[in-house]
Nucleic acid binder design. Structure first.
Length: 467
RNA sequence: GGCCCGUUCGUCUAUCGGUUAGGACACCAGGUUUUCAACCUGGUAAGAGGGGUUCGACUCCCCUACGGGCUGCCA
C-alpha cells in the first residue's frame, strides 16, 4: 500500500464530459498529485457504436479547462483489444473461464422458463459451464467467467467500508464477446492492472461491479487495487443529475463563466470535507485531500454556493491570469473577443471589479464602463438618469475636474462640494456621473471608474454625456 | 423481484457514545455606503420513523419508509 500512487480517470467517449465525471477526475487527480503519484487517462471506447472522436476531444478539453493534467499518453481501450482477448484466453487455460455457445434466444428462453417457474428474475446459468470440449459445436461463442457459486466476495472500500456480496448473486459474466472484443468488466481490470493503477476512485454506480471485477483479478492472480466508490452528484431536486436539470457538462459551466479555480474548489468540497474548511486554493486542496473525508451520501448541486465560491476565487485571482481566463471564456461562450483597447482598459479595471463579481459575465457587466466604445451612446437607463438631474451639473463638474489632483481622495470632496452647491444628495450626483461613464446598475464607485478611465478620457466622456 | 449503497438546518457538511449538535452557502433583520454590489453584526433553521444495546445515543445493531445504484455480447 505504500507504493507510489497511480490513479486514473476512465470515461467512455459517448458525450461531453459530465460534471460528475469531472469531479471523479478531480478526486483522482487530487489524490495522485497530492501524493506525488501519477494520474492517468484512459478512454473506454470499446463500444464502437457509441464512441466518437468528438466526444474524446470534448472530454480532453473539459479536463484541460479544469486544470487537470494527466501523465503519459491517453490510453485507448479499444487499441488494447488483442491484449484483452489474450487475457480471456489465459483465463480459459487456467480454467477460470469457459466457452459458452448459448445464443441470445437461449438466454431469453432461460429467463422465460424461470419466470414460468415462479421466479421473478433469475441469473442466467449457462449449460456450457463445465461442458466437455468434445461437445462444442462449430459456432460463435463468448467466453464467460467461471464465477464461484458459493462463498462470498468482499470489497474493502475506502469510502463504503466493507461490502460483502454473496457469490450466488453474481452470474458468469461474459468477458469476451463473440466478435472477440472484450466487455467492460474484463477490459477495466486488464487495463488497470497493466497500467499499474493502485487506487480506483470512481462513481458508486460501480460498487457492484467491483465484486465482479475482483473475481477477474482473482482469476488472474493479480493484486486487487484499493477501491474508493464515491457517491454520484444529484440535481437540486435530489434526483440523479440529468439533462433536465440544465447544465450537466463541464463545458456548460465554462460557457456560463465560472472560473476553473472556483469550480475545482466547489467540486472538491461537494461530497468531501476536511473539518470546516470551505474555501481553499488548489495547492491547499492538494495538501488536504484524502479518501477518508469523502461522504457516503449523494450530494446536490447548489449554484448559489458555486457562485459564492467562484466569487471568492475571482477576487483572489492574479489580474493577468484573470484576463487570460476572461478571454478564454469569451471564446468558449462564442462572444466577440476583446479589442486591444478593451483589453487594456479591462486590465486596469480588474482591481475594482474582480472582487464584486461571481462569474465572468457578471464581471464584464461591471466593467461595462471601460468596455463600451466611444462616443458613449447613453442607453435608456442612462438617459433617464441624466435627465433626472440637470445635465448642467456635468457641465460645471467637468471643467473643475481639470483643476483637482487626480486621486480618489481629492475627487471625493469636490463631488461633495458640487452636490452641495446644487442642493442635491451625493447619490443624485453620482447617477449622471455613472451614466456619463457608461456604468450600469452594478458598478464600481464613480471614483474608481474615473481613475480607471483616466483624466482626459473621463472628462471627454462626461462632456459627451452632457452635450 | 433479487442484491448493494445511502438518509444531520432549504443546500454542502462537522461530530468518529457524553457538545447549548459547530461551520459555510442561501434566507431574514440591522449596520456601513454616493447607487448596485461588496463588507460587518445578529437571527431563523437539522439528526426520516420505530424498536433495541448502553449509565448515556446523531454516532453501534435490527425493522420500516424514502432516495440511489447494479442486475446487458453498455460502460
Amino acid at each position: 500500500m505504500c507504493a507510489d500512487v497511480v490513479t486514473r480517470f476512465a470515461p467512455s467517449p459517448t458525450g461531453s464530459l459530465h460534471i460528475g465525471g469531472g469531479r471523479t477526475a478531480l478526486f483522482n487527480w487530487l489524490y495522485a498529485r497530492g501524493r506525488g503519484g501519477k494520474f492517468l487517462l484512459r478512454i473506454e471506447d470499446t463500444d464502437r457504436e457509441r464512441s466518437t472522436p468528438e466526444a474524446t476531444a470534448a472530454i480532453l478539453k473539459g479536463l484541460t479547462w479544469m486544470g487537470l493534467d494527466w501523465d503519459g499518453e491517453v490510453v485507448s481501450q479499444f487499441d488494447r483489444k488483442d491484449r484483452h482477448a489474450q487475457v480471456a484466453h489465459e483465463m480459459l487455460a487456467r480454467g477460470t473461464a469457459y466457452k459458452c455457445f448459448s445464443t441470445a434466444e437461449d438466454i431469453a428462453a432461460f429467463r422465460a422458463q424461470a419466470e414460468a417457474d415462479g421466479a421473478s428474475y433469475a441469473l442466467f446459468q449457462s449449460p456450457w459451464r463445465g461442458a466437455d470440449p468434445a461437445t462444442y459445436p462449430d459456432a460463435p461463442y463468448v467466453i464467460r467467467m467461471m464465477a464461484p457459486r458459493t462463498g462470498e466476495t468482499v470489497i474493502h472500500d475506502e469510502v463504503q467500508g466493507i461490502v460483502t456480496f454473496r457469490n450466488d448473486q453474481l452470474d458468469d459474466m461474459i468477458v469476451l464477446r463473440s466478435d472477440l472484443t472484450p466487455t467492460y468488466m474484463l477490459a477495466v481490470v486488464v487495463d488497470d492492472h497493466d497500467m499499474g493503477v493502485t487506487h480506483v476512485i470512481r462513481g458508486d454506480d460501480h460498487l457492484n461491479n467491483a465484486a465482479r471485477q475482483t473475481m477477474v483479478y482473482q482469476a488472474m492472480d493479480w493484486a486487487v487495487p484499493v477501491w474508493a466508490h464515491i457517491p454520484l452528484i444529484h440535481g437540486p431536486d435530489g434526483k440523479k443529475l440529468s439533462k433536465r436539470h440544465g447544465a450537466t457538462a463541464v463545458g456548460d459551466y465554462q460557457a456560463m463563466g465560472y472560473p476553473a479555480a472556483g469550480m475545482r474548489n466547489y467540486l472538491t468540497r461537494l461530497g468531501w470535507a476536511h473539518g470546516d474548511e470551505e474555501l481553499f486554493s488548489t495547492e491547499q486542496a492538494l495538501a488536504m485531500f484524502d479518501l477518508a473525508g469523502i461522504g457516503r451520501a449523494p450530494a446536490r448541486l447548489d449554484f448559489k454556493k458555486l457562485e459564492s465560491t467562484c466569487g471568492w476565487h475571482m477576487a483572489r485571482s492574479d489580474n493577468a491570469a484573470l484576463l487570460h481566463e476572461i478571454e478564454a471564456y469569451l471564446d468558449a461562450a462564442t462572444l466577440p473577443p476583446l479589442s486591444d483597447a478593451q483589453r487594456d482598459g479591462l486590465s486596469r479595471a480588474l482591481y475594482c471589479v474582480k472582487d464584486r463579481a461571481k462569474t465572468f459575465p457578471e464581471l464584464i457587466e461591471k466593467a461595462h464602463f471601460v468596455l463600451i466604445s466611444r462616443p458613449v451612446v447613453a442607453d435608456e437607463g442612462a438617459a433617464k438618469a441624466l435627465d433626472s438631474v440637470s445635465r448642467g451639473i456635468l457641465k460645471t463638474l467637468t471643467p473643475r475636474l481639470q483643476t483637482v489632483s487626480w486621486t480618489k481622495d481629492a475627487l471625493e470632496p469636490l463631488m461633495a462640494e458640487i452636490a452641495a452647491e446644487n442642493g442635491i444628495g451625493f447619490g443624485k450626483l453620482a447617477a449622471p456621473l455613472r451614466a456619463g461613464l457608461a456604468g450600469r446598475t452594478a458598478t464600481p464607485s464613480v471614483f474608481d471608474m474615473m481613475l480607471v478611465i483616466g483624466r482626459d478620457e473621463t472628462i471627454a466622456r462626461l462632456n459627451d454625456a452632457a452635450d
